[in-house]
């Protein structure tokens, strides 16, 4: 097995006939558990967009994406074991469960395969993790409001889907930020399920019971446009609503900005994080020392960068950014 690998890389190196990175003979696979929403679709497209040129230019030998059909941990475990058998040198995983595929991940590590998990990370110690600091994302919203609204005021919080880890983390971050900045006070909290229609109904329902001087709405993404609609329908002045990088949110923001100079910010995780994981795997294969736990930077959109991001976001999609090898090196070095 080893011989054929060495031979393969030799042949590849001869074919291209030029000096290249040490990873030119290495094969990287993406094991993805789910592809059923726009974020995941964008994630897979980003993977394709970045890895194709990387394969063509010989940075790596292959970068194939595999998605399980049923979003089940046992299915993904079997998929990972198949990838081991297919002789991949690194497996990049967006996991169905943080723990239930640990056995398969361990098998991969024991076979000498580099495992990098991202977004849906795995807890198996031998794997690398590119985690999302959701609490930090929630806190960054309050940090923005602190600057934008120095006098503080009353906040409405829109949460995500109840009982999901991500919702808990973002909310924790928001509350930690409010605790540090007593000029702010959360006077109401509703679940918007990360969906505009649910958020609109939830906000419309709670608005009559809220004081008139709400200065801002803290959100989790996918709910800002619905909140704005609810405020408008109730005939209330629009507060500063934090957006979540969805196209409809950005379009609404742009409209308001042009009409009356409306100011806010927008933050979420870019689906292109899959490409960051790809480059991290490539860097590890290249022999770089990489810490086991890395944090994904957020994709933040501000007043100045709104137009550029809106232009590049497809209708119904999410603002995205693909990472380059240099970006990955920066993340690895903690810059």
């Amino acid at each position: 097995m080893k011989h054929s690998l060495v031979l393969g890389s030799l042949v590849l190196a001869l074919m291209s006939g030029s000096a290249m990175a040490d990873t030119s003979g290495k094969k990287i696979a993406l094991s993805n558990n789910y592809a059923g929403n726009s974020w995941r679709q964008a994630m897979l497209q980003s993977w394709d967009k970045v890895t194709k040129p990387a394969v063509e230019s010989g940075v790596v030998a292959a970068a194939d994406a595999f998605t399980t059909a049923e979003n089940q941990a046992t299915e993904q475990a079997a998929q990972i074991q198949n990838l081991i058998l297919q002789g991949y040198d690194a497996i990049v995983i967006n996991a169905a469960s943080p723990t239930a595929i640990n056995g398969a991940v361990k098998e991969a590590c024991d076979a000498g395969i580099i495992v990098v998990s991202f977004d849906g990370i795995v807890t198996e110690p031998c794997a690398w993790r590119i985690a999302v600091d959701f609490a930090g994302m929630g806190k960054s919203e309050i940090d923005y409001l602190k600057e934008a609204l120095p006098n503080g005021g009353k906040l409405l919080e829109i949460r995500g889907l109840a009982g999901v880890f991500v919702d808990d983390e973002i909310s924790k971050g928001i509350h930690a930020g409010v605790a540090e900045n007593p000029q702010f006070e959360i006077v109401g909290s509703v679940h918007g399920d990360w969906a505009q229609d649910v958020a609109q109904k939830a906000v419309a329902g709670i608005l009559p019971s809220l004081p008139a001087d709400i200065v801002a709405v803290v959100t989790q993404g996918g709910d800002g446009y619905g909140a704005a609609q609810a405020f408008a329908a109730a005939g209330r002045p629009t507060p500063t609503i934090i957006m979540g990088n969805r196209q409809d949110e950005l379009a609404w923001w742009k409209e308001q900005k042009d009409a009356n100079g409306y100011k806010t910010m927008s933050v979420s995780i870019a689906p292109g994080v899959s490409t960051l994981a790809f480059w991290v795997a490539q860097q590890i294969l290249d022999g770089k020392e990489v810490p086991k736990d890395l944090i994904v930077p957020f994709l933040r959109i501000d007043q100045e960068t709104l137009e550029a991001n809106l232009a590049s976001t497809p209708v119904g999609g999410v603002a995205n950014v693909e990472y380059s090898q240099e970006d990955a090196i920066k993340v690895i070095e903690g810059k």
Binding site: Q72, A73, T74, S97, A100, N102, G103, K106
Partner: peptide, 17 residues
């Protein structure tokens, strides 16, 4: 056996079964 293979559990681990 499943836990022995996966090393840890998840409330939805075996729904396909």
């Amino acid at each position: 056996c499943l836990v022995g293979l996966t090393t840890s559990a998840d409330a939805n681990i075996a729904l396909r079964y």
